[in-house]
């Protein structure tokens, strides 16, 4: 990290997803930038989702496919008029396939200042996997 301490940040446009096949609602969809790192015990995912509120966040882990979906409301009031626009706002969407088995019951998500921190604890290899069958 030391080498980047004094680096000047570069302006980057948000990466828009256009290839997504189906969308139920109109609007722009962006790929959030993420860091994913792991230790022996857990995988951590940090995602930049500025403007997002905790209640708009939808995190789903299903068959080792982690889906991140965030609905960001436009901060502009309806009577505001654009003078210029350098970035656009919209949904964030990204999916990851996790190679490790995650202990779903211990997943912890925290949203702070527009950064999502997701802790995904690995299932201990020694313990046999418990599969709880839920009756709905």
């Amino acid at each position: 990290m030391a080498d980047t301490e004094n680096k000047a940040l570069q302006a980057k446009e948000k990466l828009e997803i256009t290839g997504q096949a189906e969308q139920s609602r109109p609007g722009l969809v962006f790929n959030p930038t993420v860091d994913i790192f792991e230790t022996d015990n857990e995988i951590t995912l940090m995602a930049d989702i500025p403007g997002a509120k905790a209640e708009d966040l939808n995190i789903d882990l299903h068959d080792s496919l982690l889906t991140l979906e965030v609905d960001v409301k436009s901060p502009e009031e309806p009577d505001e008029e654009d003078i210029f626009r350098e970035y656009r706002t919209g949904k964030y969407f990204r999916q990851f396939r996790l190679s490790q088995v995650i202990d779903q019951s211990k997943i912890d998500a925290e949203l702070k200042d527009g950064v999502l921190g997701l802790r995904l604890p690995k299932v201990e290899a020694a313990t046999p996997r418990r599969i709880s069958v839920r009756t709905s």
Binding site: M1, T4, E5, N6, K7, A8, L9, Q10, T33, V34, D35, I36, F37, E38, T39, I43, T44, M46, D48
Partner: peptide, 13 residues
């Protein structure tokens, strides 16, 4: 930690 992805950036502006 070992990184899988590192897309977020730090720096001054």
């Amino acid at each position: 930690v070992k990184y899988h992805r590192r897309e977020r950036e730090a720096g001054t502006f």
